[in-house]
Design a protein around this nucleic acid. Structure first.
Lengths: 352, 352
DNA sequence: AATTAGCACTCGGCACTAATGAGTGCTAAA
DNA sequence: TTTAGCACTCATTAGTGCCGAGTGCTAATT
């Protein structure tokens, strides 16, 4: 635990640097930190802080800049989350007009809202729920030998895919299909649908197997697509503006463009007790992000389904403002989605 | 019409500059252009070309660079489109695995394919068809007072939206709904569905009006969403790498991020006789694009539905390679989509 | 009349230097 | 323990001179 005065100085350095982006010197601190000591005393303290690794100087004759450890200490011990103002709340809310019931769209919109509000890049995932089950499957003929299969899950995910059948689609075929679907798929957990299950089912169909097979395979594809939680990234171009990325912003954007690491980033959330997580610089484990921070928050639908939403930006970001903003957004999302999908997520359990 | 030799020189300048990005001087041209004349002669010709506005020099002691007019002349008169090699064709095709029958996804994938292939940004629109009609509407209950409405159009566009009803959803309600839908919407052109039509319909329902109204309004929303042709932009971050955008690439990305002008850009396609259009620099009418070129190509589904796909990049792009590539991609898209949706787009007309 | 060799000229880019000033660490006094 | 004072460091900026690629022009050549 740092002595009181040194804490004050560190906090002042971090906050000042976050605001201006310039290294902050002893003179400037004198007036900011509200300490009645001379710049020389502050310099001594700064020397200590430097020795402890909380701040550095970009070059000998410059002011100090927080190190990663400095930010970490600030976030953990010094920062007091700002209270959101009414108009800020409204600004966040206004971004997400929840017209369509589609969770994927809501999360997308939430991402955009964060982008607008924070001027950083936003990342979000659609809900994933290991207990999600199949709510409905419809078959819609679009041409003599072609049908659209539509899948709806208990978490509100809607997926569709065209499917070419080997035989013409008749009313009989449609009836048979909806029969099979009703018996074998309604209420089935997504995780239970796999290649083996489909093959067993096809085998049991006898004469109908030939005509049904492509349709059932399509269902399997759809379930797979619905199981994977999608990751949305938006507002990347905002990052260009920050001078900390200066010339090699392209490198960061390229990194963010790849899907895999993003998944890791988001899914890593969870070890912390609180549901908001701040990762500073190399805490992100990827060296492309060593100058970036993430603030990621989990949302919940009922007790099972979860997803995450957050931002990515330069380490120099206004943590004390952003944390409550993201927390607030997460609350809204949780509420929205729970309102729509929670009720029946439990009422349908009897079915499996 | 420029004299033969001057044409050769202009072509050589354009091609060399496209390749290297450096201003090209008289000496370099001597060896490239395959002309047996001295550099002095070439200089004279270059002076002429400069006077005619086809090339400029960035500064007095530099080589020449094509002007916009120079590119235009090259594209119109000198360029011979490169023959695509087999592996290039494969590279383009491999990008778009046409698994889902969704045109929106196909166009998205096609955009990505172009991004990978060209290293520029790609832009694409989903098909729009003034003769498109409603193929199917389904209602899927998701909770006691909540249903998902799914709309499928004759062009394969699938839209869905959650809808909260004022009264509990009963089997009766569902039957009534599907009855109304069958009678009033199946086969109806999208353009016929509007607020007036919905209101008239609601008015005619009598007792059922109250329970049906929100559902029908949702249909109207969906039709609207399906009518608007969506614009996809991808690969923006590729543009960062090009030195012609150097410091203000962010400005271009911001511009591309706004939707409205993009729509204008794509929809402006059409006056030309061929179905591929090249717009160089300020021919794009937006000053944010004065250093950019677009190559846009229209695809067709049958005779009615059309959309466009193309690329945006710096004016210094390899036109002779890109034009056939994009043409090829367009052909594939047209074929794919026509295969799936053309047949029934005509077979269903009897219904309205 | 067209082409070419030769030459003076232009100007961006690079390397080098000097001046500036913000900010530090250290020492000695309070 | 705090503070005033001072020498020192070093990024930044402006100024200077040189180099060389490439030009335009002129006069000679074909």
């Amino acid at each position: 635990m740092l002595p009181q005065r040194r804490q004050k100085i560190l906090a002042a350095i971090v906050e000042q640097y976050i605001e201006t982006g310039e290294p902050v010197g002893s003179k400037a601190l004198q007036s900011i930190a509200g300490l009645d000591v001379s710049s020389a005393t502050i310099r001594n303290e700064m020397a200590e802080l430097t020795a402890q690794g909380f701040i550095t100087q970009p070059h000998t004759s410059a002011g100090r800049v927080p190190t990663q450890a400095g930010y970490r200490y600030y976030v953990d011990n010094l920062m007091k989350p700002a209270e959101l103002e009414e108009n800020e709340r409204r600004r966040i809310e206004s971004g997400l007009d929840y017209r369509s019931g589609d969770p994927e769209q809501l999360l997308q919109a939430a991402g955009e809202a964060l982008v607008d509000f924070t001027n950083f890049a936003a990342i979000s995932t659609t809900p994933s729920d290991e207990h999600a089950f199949i709510k409905n499957i419809e078959m819609v003929p679009v041409s003599p030998k072609m049908a659209m299969i539509v899948l709806l899950t208990s978490t509100g995910i809607l997926k569709s895919k065209a499917c070419r059948t080997d035989v013409p689609i008749t009313a009989d075929l449609q009836d048979a299909f909806s029969d099979i679907v009703r018996k074998n798929f309604f209420g089935t957990p997504l995780s239970d649908v796999n290649t083996v299950m489909i093959q067993t089912l096809v085998a049991s169909l006898g004469a109908k197997a030939l005509s049904m097979s492509p349709l059932l395979v399509t269902i399997s594809d759809l379930v797979e697509a619905a199981s994977v939680s999608e990751i949305n990234l938006s507002g990347q171009s905002n990052l260009l503006g920050y001078k900390e990325y200066n010339d090699n912003a392209g490198q960061l954007l390229d990194f963010l463009h790849r899907e895999e690491p993003l998944g890791m980033l988001v899914s890593a959330t969870g070890d912390s007790d609180s549901d908001i997580e701040i990762r500073i610089g190399s805490e992100n484990r990827y060296k492309e992000l060593e100058n970036s921070s993430m603030i990621i928050s989990k949302y919940k639908i009922g007790d099972n389904a979860t997803g995450a939403i957050g931002i990515i930006g330069p380490t120099r970001m206004n943590y004390s403002k952003l944390v409550p903003s993201i927390k607030y957004l997460t609350d809204i999302i949780s509420k929205f989605l729970s309102d729509v999908y929670e009720e029946e997520s439990s009422s349908g359990e009897e079915d499996s």
